[in-house]
Design a binder for these strands. Sequence first.
DNA 1: ATCTCTGCAAACTGTTTGCATTCCA
DNA 2: TGGAATGCAAACAGTTTGCAGAGAT
Lengths: 146, 146
Amino acid sequence: MLEPQRVFSDYIADHGLKQTPQRRLIAQVFFATDKHLTTEELYAKVRAVDAGVGQATVYRTLKLMCEAGLAKEMHFGDGTARYEPVLDETHHDHLICTQCGKNIEVMDETIETLQETLARNHDFILTSHRMYLYGICSGCRKPLKK
Amino acid sequence: MLEPQRVFSDYIADHGLKQTPQRRLIAQVFFATDKHLTTEELYAKVRAVDAGVGQATVYRTLKLMCEAGLAKEMHFGDGTARYEPVLDETHHDHLICTQCGKNIEVMDETIETLQETLARNHDFILTSHRMYLYGICSGCRKPLKK
DNA sequence: ATCTCTGCAAACTGTTTGCATTCCA
DNA sequence: TGGAATGCAAACAGTTTGCAGAGAT
């Protein structure tokens, strides 16, 4: 896995933008978690380190990381956007427990292939996709003893 | 295909709620389209018939139809919710052109089966899923003559 | 008559933007 | 030094809510 913060640095440099302590901090905190954070959550984590960082900066930096291909915006049921760090090029889909919110990243080559085929059958050139599987995980359904 | 408005009526009656002309109208307009409407769009269509209907009523009725299982809320990229009428039990996924926004409803039995298997392998009981395939449709990529 | 529903406007939430100031390059 | 980035607050868009009056049962 390549250093995402290095990639971000490079992206900034290559685009005539500027390194700032805020961007470094936000990126560092963001890539330190493998969860799907809301801006709110990221903002809180960042503030825990440096309370002087503004919310707008978090939004702007997150957007910048998306442009750099290092973050991906996603929407679940609720109205808030969540961001997922793109640590490497590994694509994956999501298996989400509707009970406890657990989010497992999954991947199935056969499904991927079939998706390609399906799109081609409709004369589409597939560029990307998102797949969310919702269910109940084992932990959330064990105590049924009677 | 069963009459969705009848189902809605019944749901209202069964829950001690009340039939109103607004609810009837909103349901009628909603089920008359097979597209994925935003509240804004639905509101406009409703207003074209009866300009006296309030926006809040559209929101409230849409939520009610979701609770009745007659509508499904979905989020694409943008910040606005879209609603899809659940006309019958036919499940489908989405093939979306990122250029023109065309939204084709697709379905592949094999993929469905594999999704089940994938979930089971992770000890999940699958309850539902959403799959969006993004690409460029044929119409949006033909005229490249220079 | 009661209790829900409606429309309006105000309130809220998540996100974006304008601006003066700060700060990297 | 100059242009980009920041923080703040105001602006926004989508959605929800409080309330008084209208309407369904």
